[in-house]
């Protein structure tokens, strides 16, 4: 049975192209590639660590993920494409910076809303305290 299944074929690992299409960006190399690799890897969560990013973690899976990021950037994939490639297999969990989308938009909006309300409240309080003065 097993022998039947094994054919002499080209080794082919799953590739990002199957899932996110052709690269949309410019192929990077040299120092720019290294810098972008660290930048993009710092947006990905290492799945076996505790909240550490792929850029920071020395664990084996994080090193592989970082190598994958480097390869994809070198082939011209954009940050967005790379992030959605990882999101596809690991879920939203892998994105350290939540996308402004659906429920997750709240995490960006709520602090700003709080700031707005706070500014209004503080200026009202200040006016009230100044008014007590009688002028």
């Amino acid at each position: 049975m097993i022998l039947l299944l094994i054919a002499l074929l080209q080794v082919k690992a799953p590739d990002a192209a199957q899932f996110v299409g052709a690269p949309h960006g410019v192929a990077l190399q040299g120092a720019a590639l290294e810098r972008r690799t660290m930048e993009v890897a710092s947006l990905l969560r290492c799945p076996v660590c505790q909240g550490m990013s792929v850029a920071d973690s020395p664990s084996t899976v994080a090193l592989d993920m970082k190598a994958q990021v480097r390869e994809l950037l070198a082939r011209g994939y954009t940050e967005e494409q790379i992030l959605s490639y990882f999101e596809r297999s690991y879920g939203e969990f892998v994105l350290l910076k939540p996308k402004f989308r659906g429920v997750n938009a709240l995490v960006w909006v709520l602090p700003l809303l709080a700031l707005l309300i706070g500014v209004v409240l503080v200026s009202m309080k200040l006016r009230k305290l100044e008014l007590v003065d009688g002028d």
């Binding site: 690992a13 799953p14 899932f19 799945p47 076996v48 899976v61 592989d64 993920m65 994958q68």
Partner: peptide, 14 residues
Amino acid sequence: DQQGKTAIAYGVGG
């Protein structure tokens, strides 16, 4: 699995 590519495509953590 070379360089963990298959593992990454499957979302393998540990």
